[in-house]
Write a protein that binds this DNA or RNA. Structure first.
Lengths: 328, 328
DNA sequence: TTGAAAGCGCTAACAG
DNA sequence: CTGTTAGCGCTTTCAA
């Protein structure tokens, strides 16, 4: 290769890496040689000397649920992948099931086997973000554990979205006893959506009532159970804001089973814009968060951070919107 | 490291790679040194010399649809990931959107940047399997293009599953005019499910009628359109076998809009065991294919093939089963 | 600006 | 069985 272009190995390398310290003449010669020989640099050899891997990991903690089947993860993956397609960065998918796998992951990251990390669905007690900070590995979370994080993260406006939804139930549908089925208290996203609910209730002038608040775990089963509890505690409930579409679907089923016609008796609203919301019949009104855009933003942020070592971490909040699929 | 154990570099390497040509004594010394120094071998350096990458790519062609949101892909990913977790093979996720990206992928694979390839959702005209065969890269497909493939693949028993479903409609529900909404003819999976439908109709002794067959594209919109066509062509249709759950959901909506009550007037059956099938109300009876198991099998097959260069490719067919979620 | 040379950390071939 | 040696293909000083 160096011979073919009539220059030294060093010069070839400089051309490929776009160094400015190369004469036009040499650059042209090398580029011609590249074209003729169909030369493709060996990334592994490069990695060995640069100690970069040109790969980022997307970490998805995966408990018992089929979480991954939800559009949230798919959309994140799509967004990340789309953003990375323009670079020659590889996307490693890392599902973490067991605590053993968590430890292996920690080792893996500590060994700097990737250049950066994206994480979704972080729980309160997750030590990974701190580890990432400590080993100074560029990282971006979607969501956060609570309060300030040591690494960058992108979030959607959960509080605002929840307020939008609950206000819709109160003002447009005229509901008077709006309940909420929210997520586990150890997830910031659940707390925020609950906050939004409470704010909207306060704004409406209705009486807040803790019996109208049910915690669940973002699964359909959880949604069903929560709905049953709500019906016992406040049989007069006439609207439900569920903090996820799957829970909304579960609630819907219970309402139907209990003989209540939806939406005549009860208004139901989910959070995500999802398969479930769309395929439930009638489709649920819901709050859409721009999930794919969140994925793209995460990737962009990560790339920037990888290019600018030591840069301060950022927090980005993307807007949410109400999607009405049926008339009130 | 070699010094610490009081042996040569070569011996260290042999111990790490589990070579049998090492004395117990030396092995113990090295392992102790490893433990004390917390030594972790550098994979990149190893890759450079072995020219293996310890990574496999999962290729997902992704057209305009939100395909990835369907449980099929998620379950495949879960299965593959679970199987790979035991090895130290990395999983690269490769979504292919544009033809430009397809070409980049072809280059990428030709450059042997991964040790093996898993592919899902292959279409008739996909050249990738042939490329993989040509460059002798271990590869496993889920499904096939049509007839024999040059590489290994795992499939579910689509013909049998479709027969099961249609027989259920005919025998248990007593339907007389069973229609089918099937996938695009350029996908083997669609042709097989259509075959199964035809066989079951033939078995039942009912008159086959091409007006009862509608092709669609595995999307909900496609399912709706197909259902509309069917209602025009054979208003007496009293059962539908849809070759995917999403299409079944679309068909369901049209049936409801047309004032027909399901399941009183009409029986509907989907193919996959999915979020949609479960959340549709009432839940659809459906045919379940063991998707996660398919993912695991794909990964296992690939690992075997990587370990045994030159091995003949295999075809595996996994059974399907009928899942009844409501009484007839 | 550029060629030459020195490794990056590992494995594999080769003598012992 | 084991120590030594020679690279894998690239980037990066370091002189020129």
């Amino acid at each position: 290769m160096a011979v073919r272009a009539g220059v030294g190995r060093g010069t070839v390398s400089r051309v490929i890496n776009g160094s400015p310290r190369v004469s036009e003449q040499a650059r042209a010669a090398v580029q011609e040689a590249i074209a003729e020989l169909g030369y493709v640099p060996n990334r592994v050899a490069r990695s060995l000397v640069t100690s970069r891997t040109d790969a980022v990991a997307l970490v998805i903690p995966e408990p018992q649920t089929r979480l991954f089947a939800e559009p949230y993860f798919s959309d994140i993956v799509r967004g990340v992948s789309a953003e990375l397609a323009g670079t020659d960065m590889q996307l490693l998918l890392t599902l973490v099931r067991t605590s053993h796998e968590r430890q292996r992951l920690a080792q893996y990251l500590s060994a700097h086997r990737v250049d950066g990390v994206l994480m979704v669905s972080v729980h309160q007690d997750d030590p990974l973000p701190d580890l990432l900070k400590r080993i100074e590995m560029p990282a971006v979370l979607s969501g956060r554990r609570s309060g300030p994080e040591p690494v960058s993260h992108v979030d959607s406006d959960n509080v605002g979205g929840a307020r939008l939804a609950v206000r819709h139930l109160v003002e447009v549908r005229g509901s008077r006893a709006v309940a909420t089925i929210t997520g586990p208290p150890d997830m910031d996203v659940a707390r925020c959506r609950l906050d939004g609910y409470r704010q909207a209730i306060a704004d409406s002038g209705h009486e807040p009532d803790e019996r109208l608040v049910a915690h669940a775990d973002f699964t359909e089963e959880g949604g069903r159970e929560a709905m049953r509890r709500l019906l016992v505690r406040r049989p007069d409930v006439d609207a439900v804001f569920a903090a996820s579409d799957v829970m909304a679907s579960g609630a819907l089923r219970i309402l139907r089973e209990s003989g209540r016609s939806v939406p005549d008796d009860v208004a139901l609203i989910g959070f995500d814009d999802s398969v479930v919301a769309r395929h439930t019949d009638p489709p649920l009104t819901s709050v859409r968060q721009p999930t794919e855009e969140m994925g793209r933003t995460m990737a962009r942020l990560l790339l920037e951070e990888m290019a600018t070592p030591g840069r301060d971490h950022r927090r980005m909040v993307l807007p949410t919107e109400l999607v009405r699929r049926r008339s009130a």
